[in-house]
Design a protein around this nucleic acid. Structure first.
Length: 119
DNA sequence: CCTATGACTGGTC
DNA sequence: TGACCAGCCATAG
């Protein structure tokens, strides 16, 4: 499948693009779904998202259910607001209740058939 | 080809 | 509950 020959980042982006509004996923989760890459890879991939592609990167948070602070700038605030706009509530400590809002993952068949490929 | 550079995670203390 | 540490590996220049 072109899924496999596609750059790892592209696979990650395609996966992130599947996260439905109102749900969030954590880096380790995405890494697990892509298979063969680590959470860190996902984080790096997010940082490398090309501006051309429209990806709901805001739906990817860290394992603590919090938005990850960026190296530069403070886009994490934007991320929080985007998520709230999607109906995801944050606790007083800016944490999301992952038990409730965690994305269950892509439907295996769906992924198989779609062979999502960005770019 | 080699080096620098990252949106993380899990375990310890 | 927080702070600190060591692995992780693809991309860009």
């Amino acid at each position: 499948m072109s899924l496999n020959k596609a750059p790892l980042y592209q696979r990650i982006y395609g996966l992130v693009a599947q996260i439905p509004s109102g749900k969030v996923a954590n880096y380790g989760q995405i890494a697990d779904f892509t298979g063969g890459c680590t959470a860190r890879m996902v984080g790096y991939a997010m940082a490398a998202i090309p501006p051309e592609v429209d990806i709901p990167w805001q739906r990817v948070v860290n394992s603590q259910g919090k938005v990850s602070p960026r190296r530069s700038g403070d886009g994490s605030l934007i991320q929080k607001q985007l998520l709230e706009a999607e109906g995801i509530p944050f606790s007083a400590k800016d944490k999301i209740d992952m038990k409730v809002y965690r994305w269950q993952g892509p439907d295996p068949e769906w992924a198989m058939l779609h062979d999502f490929f960005i770019d």
